[in-house]
Design a protein around this nucleic acid. Structure first.
Lengths: 243, 243
DNA sequence: GCTTGCATGATTGGATCCAATATACAATAT
DNA sequence: ATATTGTATATTGGATCCAATCATGCAAGC
């Protein structure tokens, strides 16, 4: 039997197809914010970038849409999904419901090594100097706490919710001083986990997410008002990221 | 302008494509349980059923997979997703977290007419004689309470969670006396909504879902043990739904 | 008897081609 | 001059075709 052999086996039937790779690349680009919201995703140009035909591109775009990261209109095309402040706000409410449940379950399951890893992620975020990576580090930290929950479905849903707002979180972290608050929140959550106080970790997580959400939405509203005011004098300046 | 004309206009850019229709049909068949779990979904045979080529079928299958209703292996094919008791249990835990939040938000937003409609759905479930429709009526009732929450993202996530376990709920409702308990639970939730006690409605919903989950998992475990015992005598009888 | 190697058919993944639709722009009428 | 209509091009949705991979069966060798 192969099960007893001394090498690592991988499930070859799960290897990535072209459309998997394209999906992953587009997904990362959208989540990270490198693709602006509303940006149209032309099948042909993407196909040329990856040196493939449009077929795998279409499958990738379909999956993006299924995950809510893109929106399509028949015969018109697919565009990067955009979210209204209300929608962003709802996502944070949603996360504030789920993520505490996940940490609470994870805390008693974390080993000392797990805690050490989480603390390292926490430190990495706190020490991060590259603003472009704050979003990534922020996510790493939260994920280091959640991943031991033993709740794979919850995690997949949380991951999707995070994906949808990640771009906005990043833009905010770069442009505001929300970092300070985030650093303190993270360490408080981390401490609660370390002293095995699951309920406290959950409540702190809830507060952290709710606060991050309201701060972010306020930031976006302010940005929007500012943008509106500026563009009132010069018509047709609304569009930002062209082709 | 067309906006003032006397006929109903529809957004043609949102009309369904072939793959949309195929996706919907497959989705319904899976959710309702008409397609057995593990059943392989051959592109060719599905394409022939719908009189189309395999292209739209593949897109539909890809979306099924993205929604977790099917699983695929490269070059092997797509199969209807199956869930372990643990996974089913997790989905119910998940629903028990989210759905109370949704009803709680919906209660103060329901008009008298909304409440009447919900009560009708509740009655329809209680009065239902056709076991095959219980699952549907059950879902209608819950949905009649949730749909006024004004939380579209929460609803979409709840809908997906419901979809994944619907088949099992149906099989259980048909074969056990869980109906009685469900009837009572539903009316209790309904009453709490009618007297505008959002917190009670939420808590009752939580209890209802948790109870339904544990009952269902126990039922499945029992079925499984029974099946194992029976098949020990006749090898190779595990497969059920062929062709 | 058991394993190995290979040939064959079935099935999927992807490329290419065609039809349906939308968008941009020129032509026309009022 | 402006609004409407017709036409050309770009783009998507789907059909058909080809290549890569998998599953199965059978023969050969130990």
């Amino acid at each position: 039997m192969a099960g007893e052999l001394a090498f690592e086996a991988v499930d070859l039937s799960r290897t990535a197809s072209s459309s998997d790779l394209i999906y992953g690349a587009l997904r990362d680009a959208i989540v990270s914010g490198r693709l602006a919201e509303g940006q149209v995703l032309r099948q042909d140009s993407i196909a040329r970038m990856f040196n493939v035909s449009r077929i795998p591109v279409r499958e990738a775009l379909g999956r993006l849409e299924a995950h809510g990261l893109a929106a399509s209109a028949r015969y018109k095309g697919v565009v990067v999904a955009s979210m209204s402040p209300d929608e962003i706000s709802e996502i944070f409410e949603f996360r504030a419901v789920l993520e505490p449940v996940v940490v609470e379950r994870a805390v008693p399951r974390m080993s000392a090594a797990d805690l050490a890893r989480a603390q390292r992620a926490c430190d990495a975020f706190a020490a991060g100097t590259d603003a472009a990576r704050w979003g990534e580090l922020n996510r790493d930290f939260h994920w280091s706490l959640y991943s031991h929950s033993g709740m794979p479905y919850h995690l997949s849903v949380v991951r999707n919710a995070m994906d949808r707002v990640e771009r906005y979180v990043r833009s905010q972290l770069k442009l505001t001083s929300g970092m300070e608050r985030a650093r303190a929140d993270h360490q408080a959550i981390m401490d609660a986990c370390a002293r095995r106080d699951a309920a406290a970790a959950a409540e702190l997580t809830r507060q952290h997410i709710l606060n991050a959400g309201t701060t972010l939405v306020a930031f976006i509203d302010a940005q929007k008002r500012e943008g509106d005011g500026a563009s009132e004098g010069s018509a047709g300046r609304g569009r930002r990221a062209g082709g």
